[in-house]
Design a protein around this nucleic acid. Sequence first.
DNA 1: CCATTTAGTTACTTTATGTAACTAATGTTA
DNA 2: TAACATTAGTTACATAAAGTAACTAAATGG
Lengths: 107, 107
Amino acid sequence: MDTSLICPRFENAISILSQRWTGLIIYQLLAGPQRFSQLTEAIGISGRLLSERLKNLEANGLVIRSVYPETPVRIEYRLTEKGIALKPVMDEIQSWSQTWVEPIETK
Amino acid sequence: MDTSLICPRFENAISILSQRWTGLIIYQLLAGPQRFSQLTEAIGISGRLLSERLKNLEANGLVIRSVYPETPVRIEYRLTEKGIALKPVMDEIQSWSQTWVEPIETK
DNA sequence: CCATTTAGTTACTTTATGTAACTAATGTTA
DNA sequence: TAACATTAGTTACATAAAGTAACTAAATGG
């Protein structure tokens, strides 16, 4: 159905942010540029999905991928201006979570 | 994997908000209490998923379900204080989307 | 007692995600 | 120079979530 009455820009924004993992990836990159393996470890995502999400974020202009031909190769992901502009969103989620949310349970 | 280095409360918050549709449902309910069919039409979600999401939001203390035995029955969903507290998050997403996002394409 | 209205549920298909093993590129070491 | 190490992925396959459409339940009106 596409009879939505909700603002199309907002809807588009939500469709990016409500994809699994993208919130955490952006949050993590707000701390500074990071390489693939760092992201994998920090947020606990598989290589397959991280790769897919980063490509998607790049395509959406939120993330830039840079290759440094060192040994071994270093590939760094960092936020664009558009990506950094999501900091207030993340800050508000952070703030809400401190007031209202219990820590996730680790069984 | 659960070796995440990210704040557990934040992670829990993201796990609620990054679920498909929940953002739109909360956004929509911020405009005021609404019945099932209104939500369906406003955000373009199927009954099956709306039902599932509303149960989940209720279980997470974000939404309250009230039954009014009129004819035909009216069932109203509204945000709790915890749910209303997400307004600043939605406002920031809204604001970001106005600056950085194109309207979603309707093919 | 048949029709209407709202609020769902059920059964089934399609898409997304999780998992683990594998590959590519590059340089280092025996 | 052949085997090894390291990073950054990709592939193939299993499982879980989401989409779709038809169906059910409860309550009243005709």
